[in-house]
Simulated scan of single mutants.
Amino acid sequence: MSRGPAPVRAHTPAAEDAAEPDRQFVTALARGLEILRCFDAERRTLGTTEIAHITGLAQPTVWRLCHTLQKTGFLHVVPGKDKLQLGIAAIALGSAALAGQEALEVIRPLLQVLADRYQVAVALGRRDGDSIVYLLRCQGNSPLLMNLRVGSRIPLFHSAIGWSYLACCTPEDREALIARATSEGRMGDEADQQAMATAIAQYPERGFVFHPRPAYQINTVAAAIELPVSERYVVSCGGPDSLLPEPLMLNEVGPLLRQLAKDLQPILLMGRHI
């Protein structure tokens, strides 16, 4: 339900903060964490050249950081390949984070109800850099099964779930994000930009964005969950247009998703440790 190339550089809040003078900021640590962020459900193994391309870091810097991450157990060499993957230390850290996410287990059945009703996919995500990372994904019995799962990264500027995040940003924050992406050539062509602008402009009235993709015969709606800006979540519902034609999305599925976002708000507010 998304498209667009992987970002050339992984922008993170830490990296952005580092642009301002901060005597307490440890640049080497931020760069090491930026390397760990390169790995996700789709990019399970990476070479140092790929990591350098994704992060924008110099190759010698990547070599040194990856060596350190290997020594500390956060990265591991894939047997028989010149590739790296997350090590036991990173997996243990992720498991510790997931252990406290009781709110997600409360939310899962609510997403599954909508997924089963229309036999499509419903996902909950949160922004990380220039992507929305899936925290939950529920799949109905759809004839079209997308190769997406928990941990998948969806491009912020090329997806309904990303557009819904942008739609609930302040105009200043949204303009800053778009300006940076434009300067780095990650905004797509003029038609893509116009489609995004239209969807965002319609969000206040609709309460959701609608993203049709005729070339792929997929339609998606998405809505933001109103929380403090640093903790904002987004939810989406999408599938083949044979199951989710535009009139159904605009008149029925979109409003249901808008209500689902409202229903999830108090659950996420109570479980803000997620």
Score class of each variant (00 low, 15 high):
M1G: 13
S2G: 15
G4N: 11
G4W: 12
P5L: 13
P7H: 13
T12M: 05
P13G: 13
E16D: 15
E20W: 15
D22N: 15
R23A: 15
F25N: 11
F25P: 06
F25T: 09
V26I: 10
A28E: 15
L29D: 12
A30N: 06
R31K: 15
I35S: 01
L36Q: 00
D40N: 03
A41C: 12
R43Q: 15
R43E: 14
R44V: 04
R44F: 09
T48L: 11
T49V: 11
T49E: 14
E50M: 03
T55A: 00
A58G: 10
Q59V: 11
V62L: 04
R64L: 06
R64E: 07
L65G: 04
C66S: 06
T68K: 07
L69D: 00
Q70R: 11
G73Q: 02
F74L: 03
L75H: 00
V77N: 07
G80K: 10
K81Q: 15
D82L: 07
Q85L: 05
L86I: 03
G87N: 00
G87I: 00
I88P: 10
G94F: 09
G94L: 06
A99T: 10
Q101T: 11
E102Q: 13
E105D: 15
E105Y: 15
V106A: 09
V106T: 14
I107T: 05
R108P: 03
L110T: 05
L111V: 04
L111P: 00
V113C: 08
A115N: 01
R117Y: 11
Q119R: 14
Q119V: 07
A123R: 01
G125S: 08
R126D: 07
R126N: 08
R127A: 05
D128V: 12
D128W: 08
V133W: 07
Y134S: 05
Y134H: 13
L136H: 05
L136F: 02
R137H: 07
Q139W: 05
G140P: 01
S142T: 13
P143G: 12
L145W: 15
S152E: 14
R153W: 13
I154K: 02
F157Y: 09
S159T: 07
S159D: 05
W163E: 06
S164P: 07
A167T: 08
C168G: 09
C169M: 10
T170P: 06
T170H: 11
D173R: 13
E175C: 08
A176G: 09
I178V: 12
T182C: 09
T182G: 08
G185N: 11
R186D: 05
D189V: 02
D192S: 07
Q193W: 04
Q194M: 10
Q194R: 14
A195F: 02
M196S: 09
T198C: 08
T198D: 14
T198P: 04
A199Q: 01
A199N: 05
I200M: 03
A201N: 12
G207N: 10
V209K: 03
H211M: 08
Q217H: 14
N219A: 01
T220Q: 03
V221Q: 02
A223Y: 02
A224K: 02
E226P: 06
L227H: 05
S230G: 11
V235M: 04
C237V: 07
C237F: 09
G239N: 05
P240E: 11
S242K: 12
P245R: 03
E246P: 00
L248E: 04
L248A: 06
N251W: 04
E252A: 14
V253H: 01
L256F: 08
L256G: 04
R258C: 05
D263I: 00
L264G: 00
Q265P: 03
M270T: 11
H273N: 11
